[in-house]
Write a protein that binds this DNA or RNA. Structure first.
Length: 579
DNA sequence: TGGCCTTTGAAGCTT
DNA sequence: AAGCTTCAAAGGCCA
């Protein structure tokens, strides 16, 4: 199978349309997606229209629809050779120029500390702009200077409060290295949800050799943990800097697990070692002794409600099992695509809205999620896939089963009761709160910027769908991807009633983007359709990457610049030209 | 103080 | 195999 091919060669005979598709994705990343948030709306509209037209013609290049001034002038064809791309990247960095960022404030950056620059323990941006922000289409990687030298077992308080998205190669390497490494990745921009990927099956344990770049580098740690790796956006968006994962009190050898993991994985990958060669971790610890951020100290999260369900069931007494379980750190599930999306976009929505309740925010995010283009969603699916991959690499023995049934027993009971009640009640008597409660009719979040971005970004148009090259190659799993708008029809109805204006208004505001409008309405009121499916990207070959234009990798000279870019930077995973 | 709410997706569990 | 359940994040709300 292609995935087992040597890195970078995981595709054979990629259809041209796939490449074109890839290009389209890039186009959107840098085009509509970026401009939608803060850019000129009219330009965006035009761009979208042009893109749609291009799709219709099958060209997909979208080169003619480029309406962004910041856009790299070079035609993508000029980067068919990785070195060309890299040269361009270097040139741009030297020029100090960077491109207007897309609406995604998160992942796109690889934060590389300048050697010798002081590391700000609290994660705040260095006044001196000590960091070099290298745009990465991947979770933020931030390696505090000297981080790799620190003994995480005695971390400084700085780490405890570090809100800087961390992660990066432990090796000192050229800033472009990450980009280069991507070229070896089997990454497919339109990658399907992880479990759909034919490349790896964490469960069956037949993963392809992991590539460092595939290891999602962000695993925020909870406060009080020895080390912390907050959300990538945490350094700029405190709300999102909340710890996601904590680390067991055992102490680590490296304050940045993911970072170290990258390093180890890099070695593994470079030597083509199979992940199986990595000794299984003990109690959530990485073989290298590096804890994973998904580990939550049992102290922090102690829910010894059930006897051990470890696969290796034994005859130990319940008490013993319970004790062992208490000792066992709680390893959280890796975040799925939507969770990643929420983490990234929550702050943005909160900032735009008057709402603060997560329930309401989540509803909005849920709708926006559906309004995202398939390409954009694909980025998150890919992130999630990598997340799971890293997770499985770190915790080969971990299973979602480990956390199953250990949380909120009351809730389950309540749900059960509710279900029984629902069966007896009419639809109107659903016990769940109507969504309207969280999404007031006054559209408190009718923020033009992001909303437009989401809506406009959505190319979920018939033409777009038809233009999807991967469609024919969609796997069963891909087709099984959630198409739904919401799992609760009644809630959806509520949303439709009370929020249609919210979405349609946005769509209407971009009249030229009729596709967006239709998409929105479709998402809300129509049965799930192909349009709302995640991109089937398993078939997107890496060769497509070879033809992909370089995503603008740029050095950001200052925190202010970083912020500026971050505010407009779209999430994009594809950055790597094949080498 | 801790569960609820809300979202989607992954994965385990149940039938 | 299909359907159901749980968990993952987030933070205000409420008992």
């Amino acid at each position: 199978m292609p995935q087992l091919e040597p890195a970078g060669g995981d595709d054979l005979g990629a259809p041209d349309e796939l490449i074109a598709f890839q290009d389209e994705g890039e186009e959107q990343d840098k085009g509509a997606g970026r401009g939608s948030a803060h850019g000129d709306l009219d330009e965006l509209k035009s761009s979208l229209v042009s893109e749609t037209e291009n799709r219709g013609t099958g060209t997909g290049s979208g080169s003619g629809s480029d309406s962004e001034a910041e856009r790299p002038p070079q035609p993508r064809e000029s980067f068919q050779k990785p070195r060309d791309y890299l040269a361009e990247v270097v040139r741009r960095q030297q020029d100090g120029g960077f491109f207007k960022g897309p609406p995604y404030p998160g992942y796109p950056f690889l934060m590389l500390p300048e050697l010798g620059s002081p590391y700000l323990a609290n994660g705040a941006l260095s006044p001196g702009g000590a960091r070099t922000y290298l745009q990465m289409k991947w979770p933020l990687l931030d390696v505090p200077a000297g981080a790799t030298l620190k003994d995480s077992r005695s971390p400084s308080p700085a780490h405890l409060s570090n809100k800087v998205p961390v992660v990066q190669h432990a090796h000192h390497m050229h800033p472009l290295t990450p980009l280069i490494t991507y070229s070896n990745d089997h990454f497919s921009p339109g990658s399907p949800p992880g479990h759909l990927s034919p490349e790896i099956d964490p469960k069956t344990g037949i993963p392809r050799p992991p590539h460092p770049s595939e290891l999602p580098p962000y695993y925020p740690l909870s406060p009080g943990a020895v080390g912390q790796i907050p959300h990538p956006l945490g350094w700029l968006v405190p709300q999102q800097g909340q710890p996601v994962y904590s680390i067991p009190p055992g102490g680590f050898r490296h304050p940045y697990p993911a970072l170290a993991m990258n390093a180890s994985m890099s070695s593994l990958m470079s030597s083509r070692f199979s992940p199986h060669m990595v000794p299984p971790p003990t109690h959530g610890l990485h073989p290298s002794g590096i804890p994973h951020p998904t580990i939550v100290s049992p102290i922090v999260k102690q829910e010894p409600t059930q006897p051990s369900v470890s696969p290796g069931g034994n005859s130990k007494s319940p008490v013993t099992v319970k004790k062992e379980e208490e000792k066992k750190p709680h390893i959280k599930k890796p975040l799925n695509a939507f969770m990643l999306y929420m983490k990234e976009m929550r702050a943005k929505v909160v900032a735009e809205c008057t709402l603060k309740e997560s329930a309401a925010i989540n509803q909005i995010l849920g709708r926006r999620w559906h309004s995202l283009s398939r390409e954009e969603q694909a980025k998150y699916y890919e992130l999630a896939r990598k997340e799971r991959q890293l997770h499985s690499q770190l915790y080969p023995t971990w299973s979602a089963r480990d956390n199953y049934g250990k949380k909120k027993k009351r809730k389950r009971e309540k749900l059960a009761q509710q279900q029984s009640h629902d069966t007896e009640s009419s639809l109107a008597s659903k016990s769940k709160k109507p969504c309207v409660q969280y999404l007031p009719a006054e559209k408190p979040c009718d923020s033009p910027a992001s909303s437009h971005g989401s809506m406009l970004d959505s190319p979920a148009t018939p033409s777009a769908a038809l233009a999807s090259p991967a469609a024919p190659a969609a796997t069963h799993s891909e087709q099984a991807q959630p198409l739904s708008l919401t799992t609760k029809p009644e809630a959806r109805a509520q949303l439709t009633m009370h929020s249609a204006a919210f979405l349609s208004g946005k769509a209407a505001s971009s009249s030229s983007s009729s596709s967006s409008s239709s998409s929105s309405s479709s998402s809300l009121g129509s049965p799930p359709s192909l349009l709302s499916r995640p991109i089937p990207f398993t078939s997107v070959p890496s060769t497509a990457l070879l033809s992909s234009p370089p995503s603008f990798a740029a050095a950001i000279p200052s925190p202010q610049a970083a912020l500026a870019v971050l505010q407009t930077q779209p999430l994009s995973l594809v950055t790597k030209p094949a080498d």
